[in-house]
């Protein structure tokens, strides 16, 4: 049975929304990070789905790109978080307001 593209779209939208809400409402930096990953992967899912649907491999190439970039980003991001944590003993983003204008 062929699963229609609409289901992919729906799943992707749900995952993305969960990610957005996670970023918006959680205060722990790690969880925000994971929510961002979730959003990225929601997009990845969509790209793969359309790639298959349109029989165009470009979408899959993009996904590889995004995965590579996301991996790099996580590495840098976690490093920053580590040092933030070392300095402030907290991963609560509300305490990170040193750049207040």
């Amino acid at each position: 049975m062929q699963i229609s593209i609409n289901w992919y779209l729906l799943l992707s939208a749900v995952l993305f929304t969960i990610g957005v809400l996670g970023v918006l409402f959680r205060r722990n930096a790690i969880i925000i990070f994971m929510s961002i990953e979730l959003m990225l992967n929601a997009v990845n899912l969509l790209l793969v789905a359309f790639s298959s649907y349109l029989s165009d491999s470009k979408g899959q190439v993009f996904v590889f790109f995004i995965m590579a970039v996301a991996a790099a980003e996580v590495a840098v991001g976690l490093a920053i978080l580590m040092s933030v944590y070392r300095n402030s003993k907290s991963t609560d983003i509300n305490s990170l307001n040193k750049l207040k204008g």
């Binding site: 970023v23 918006l24 409402f25 990170l96 307001n97 750049l99 207040k100 204008g101």
Partner: peptide
């Protein structure tokens, strides 16, 4: 005056962005 908008609260920034 404008600087007041820069609260330093990341949650707020993200919220505004979304």
């Amino acid at each position: 005056v404008i600087r007041k908008a820069q609260t330093g609260n990341i949650g707020f920034y993200v919220f505004v962005m979304v």
